[in-house]
Nucleic acid binder design. Structure first.
Lengths: 338, 338
DNA sequence: CCTGGCACTCCGCCGTTTCGAGTGCCAGCT
DNA sequence: AGCTGGCACTCGAAACGGCGGAGTGCCAGG
């Protein structure tokens, strides 16, 4: 176990390095922080911290920089979540209140997060599997052509075209619509399949193929869209840091363009607790020097999706975590209202 | 007017510079192209081309690079549109055919364009104002709460919530839905407003506020969504070139995040002709060393939106133009089918 | 266990030199 | 008149070398 002062030294190193982006030495540390000890003592502490793997030096006779493990300790033991200023809170509210629909909410959230944290923002659309059905609509676009529209309680709308072999009567359609809605409205998407399985049997044999087709498309939509949608923004912020490492920006950009990678970054866990993944903890080459701060958001207690930011491991964790959490809460409120 | 050979020299310079990304000198030119003259002669031609403003040298005693004006001449007079290989055509078709809905079509198109051209791809969603109404749906989510769903002939779906002061009966809603659809289905969005203006008058006075509310929201949607949506991808390709100018990538990324800038880049013109904007022709600082190749696409003859790519002025214009045009055609086909 | 002192290391900076691709110009040839 | 070979010149890129200084590890003394 590290002594109190050594933890304090680590904290100081992290803070200074985040601020200056340059390796920090023992002398500078004692000058900028009231540690109450001399540089030599700090050097000894640093040697220990390095032995333990919390800090490292890029090369001999240079200052120290925190390792992933060092950041991890900092985040777990020392970093609180810095609350936003009231001005920032008001800005968030004003910015999000103007949204007209779900796309707009997500788009605004991304821009907001990117601006607040000056990093790359990632927002997952409310998940279908974790949402509930608000309404199912069936529209006859042509005699044998139906459009299926799914509306979730989070405001998300999915639509699919269905081609039927034979024309479907309007009354049948209305019947199906009514029965479908009475069974699934208010239910979790994940719970829908067993609820509609026996529906075709209650219809006239002539109509069963069409009914089955509609149901098949419905179920297919639920499954397919497990592959979630994601929006990201603020890529320009990547150039803010890394000014001297244009080499490092490339793999990050590439990783960010892969939906699958992004989803993994946000994490699959359903709980809405805030997660911080630091450097190699992301298990993705190219993101080895980036950290991810993510949190679930939702209209109620449970998270329907996640949002977060991706930035350099040398980020302002308390501030970032504060911004991410605050934005997630406001987005949750907005969704609950709509 | 430039002589035939000087044009040939310019073409050679453009081609070599695009290939090597380095200023090209007179000697290298004569070696790589069968111009039939000596380096000295080429030097004289180069001097003339430089006087005319088609090429420039980064500094004395360096090779020449094309100017914006030089690229412009190249594109206008010398560059054809390189057709894609049949393998590429098949790849496009396979890739786009798997799309399930409009979002998916756009997302796949962006990725496809980015991969084909190895540049940043930009795709505008089918414009509402230039689309037609396929269907208007009104859903009673709660007694005094209506959801308006607009479906366009390009598959785009817009939805809005409407809060009414008083409950609206299902029969009234059905009535309004029917009349609304009979008036506007098949019409251009832009033509809708005058067609629905007198609708409230034909309803019972008690219901008029609700009807008016619905219409207001409908019209508002049409206007608001003139602000088009856009999707872009392939930002990682920015790092492919510019390897030595990490400085130049920043303003480009920033510009690409501004919806308004992107829309201007694609161009407001309604015609579907291909446009090429080179360097300063974009009238946007930060995009002074990028070119935009854009073209309209649509299900029929007329364009409902635009798509294109943004890349360095030193791009392979014939190849890029070929890819952009081909993708636009296939997307048009897909939209027509759905 | 902390501290001041000291020798050592090594990166980053800067001025100098060298190298070579490329140019402009000119005289001569066709 | 237009093309060509030759030649002197320019100027950036890369290689070299010599500091300077921040930072370290270690040690002896409080």
């Amino acid at each position: 176990m590290l002594s109190e002062r050594r933890l304090e030294v680590l904290r100081a190193i992290v803070q200074d390095y985040v601020g200056t982006e340059e390796p920090v030495g023992s002398k500078a540390l004692t000058e900028r922080h009231r540690l109450g000890v001399s540089p030599a003592t700090v050097r000894n502490d640093m040697a220990v911290l390095e032995d333990e793997g919390y800090i490292a030096q890029p090369h001999t006779s240079a200052g120290r920089i925190p390792t992933d493990k060092g950041y991890r300790l900092f985040v777990d033991k020392m970093a609180g979540v810095k609350p936003l200023s009231s001005a920032e809170r008001r800005a968030i509210q004003n910015f999000l209140d103007g949204a007209v629909d779900l796309d707009d909410v997500v788009a605004r959230t991304v821009r907001l997060l990117a601006q607040l944290t000056r990093q790359v923002a990632v927002v997952q659309y409310p998940s279908l599997t974790r949402s509930s059905v608000r309404h199912v609509e069936l529209l006859a676009l042509a005699p044998a052509r139906i459009m299926l529209v799914l509306i979730t309680d989070t405001g998300r709308v999915e639509q699919r075209l269905i081609d039927c072999q034979a024309p479907v009567g309007e009354t049948v359609l209305a019947d199906l619509r009514a029965r479908l809605n009475s069974r699934v409205v208010g239910r979790r998407f994940a719970d829908v399949p067993p609820l509609v399985q026996d529906l075709p049997e209650s219809f006239d044999p002539d109509d069963r193929p069409a009914v089955a087709g509609v149901l098949a498309t419905l179920l297919e939509t639920l499954v397919e869209q497990t592959e979630e949608r994601i929006m990201l923004g603020g890529a320009a912020n990547l150039t803010r840091f890394n000014h001297d490492f244009p080499l490092t920006i490339r793999p990050v950009l590439e990783a960010l363009e892969e939906q699958m990678v992004l989803l993994k970054l946000l994490g699959e866990a359903t709980d809405s607790a805030m997660t911080v993944r630091i450097g190699h903890e992301n298990f993705h080459e190219g993101l080895n020097s980036t950290s991810v701060v993510a949190v679930g958001y939702g209209s109620g207690d449970e998270a329907v999706a996640k949002l977060g930011v991706v930035g350099p491991t040398r980020m302002d964790y308390p501030g970032t975590m504060g911004a991410v959490r605050a934005v997630a809460r406001y987005v949750g409120q907005i969704l609950a209202e709509s």
